[in-house]
């Protein structure tokens, strides 16, 4: 079994998703069956094969260095669940 309780806790933590015990159990089962299933890729010989990240064959387009963005802070904060004094607000962080 590739995914155990520890692993699921670790990746849930990395993903910032809280799981209760029941959910952990379910995901352990799901993820293990999915990982077993994708295991078949090991049958494929990929020696000397370049990984493909993006299908596009064109070159990365670049923009000129012009600052012409006109969003106001009101617009940017409009959808924020909590904003104060022109800032996004989140629970206090102690570094």
């Amino acid at each position: 079994m590739k995914i155990d309780k520890n692993t699921i806790n670790k990746i849930a933590r990395l993903s910032r998703i809280k799981l209760d015990d029941k959910e952990s159990e379910d995901y352990i089962k799901d993820l293990n069956s999915i990982l077993d299933w994708v295991e078949q890729l090991n049958e494929v010989n990929t020696e000397n094969v370049e990984p493909l990240s993006n299908i596009s064959s064109s070159i990365l387009p670049k923009r000129e260095d012009v600052s012409n963005d006109t969003n106001s802070s009101e617009e940017i904060l409009e959808n924020a669940p909590d904003n104060l004094e022109g800032f996004f607000a989140v629970p206090k962080v102690v570094e």
Binding site: S15, L35, L41, T46, L52
Partner: peptide, 26 residues
């Protein structure tokens, strides 16, 4: 999200994600 996090995480990237990118090329 969980499966995606797992296949990118340290120690599994090559076995899953990189492998998949290579098969995608094929």
């Amino acid at each position: 999200i969980l499966i995606g996090t797992y296949v990118l995480s340290a120690g599994y990237y090559d076995a899953y994600y990189l492998k998949a990118q290579k098969v995608r090329k094929l």
